[in-house]
């Protein structure tokens, strides 16, 4: 098999896209709004303004692996995550929420938001199962699309963040130092 190594192919693979080239905050916000209306409730409004971040926070996220690789992360206060879980469970919500219920419900919101973000990105990509806990670190500050909203007076952030570190800046000395 002889495939010509055309300049076209090299150009397309020489560029690693960052998330802001692929999706904007308005799209992420509208995906989140739709998820909130369908899952949390019809009258549930997300106000796109930053709120005072709480001290005790929890994140839920899914990973996307493909032409763009990273995570879609929801972060909010622990109390707000519980309130969200109650809203999802509605009449099925138990009197005392177990940690498992919050993991399940808060994780499922990340799954729905993440699945729709994935569909808006170039594919093919894979999607992980949702995880709940401490969010993955931001590797490349340029590769982040973050939307801050307020739900029922409480701040929630939705961060679509890349997992790859920045590329090294080419230098004539051929030093191969890659930033951490």
């Amino acid at each position: 098999m002889t495939t010509m190594d055309t300049g076209e192919r090299r150009r397309s693979s020489d560029v690693r896209p960052v998330i802001t080239d692929l999706i904007d905050g308005a799209t992420v916000l509208s995906i989140a709004e739709e998820a909130w209306i369908a899952l949390v409730g019809e009258d549930e409004i997300l106000v796109p303004i930053p709120g005072e971040p709480p001290v005790d926070i929890v994140s839920s996220w899914v990973d996307i692996v493909g032409p763009w690789t990273g995570s879609v992360v929801l972060t909010t206060g622990r109390g707000t995550a519980e309130e969200l879980s109650r809203a999802l469970l509605r009449e099925a919500a138990p009197e005392v929420l177990e940690h498992e219920d919050v993991e399940d419900a808060f994780g499922e919101i990340a799954n729905v938001v993440g699945g729709n973000v994935k569909a808006a990105l170039p594919g093919p990509s894979g999607l992980s199962l949702p995880q709940v806990g401490n969010a993955p670190v931001v590797r490349n500050p340029v590769d982040v699309c973050r939307v801050d909203v307020v739900w029922r007076g409480e701040p929630v952030s939705i961060s679509v963040q890349g997992a790859l570190p920045p590329l090294p800046v080419p230098s004539p000395t051929r030093e191969n130092e890659v930033p951490l």
Binding site: L88, L89, A92, D104, E108
Partner: peptide, 9 residues
């Protein structure tokens, strides 16, 4: 569905 919440929804 592996999510109990989603099954309920």
């Amino acid at each position: 569905d592996d999510s109990r919440v989603m099954r309920q929804i």
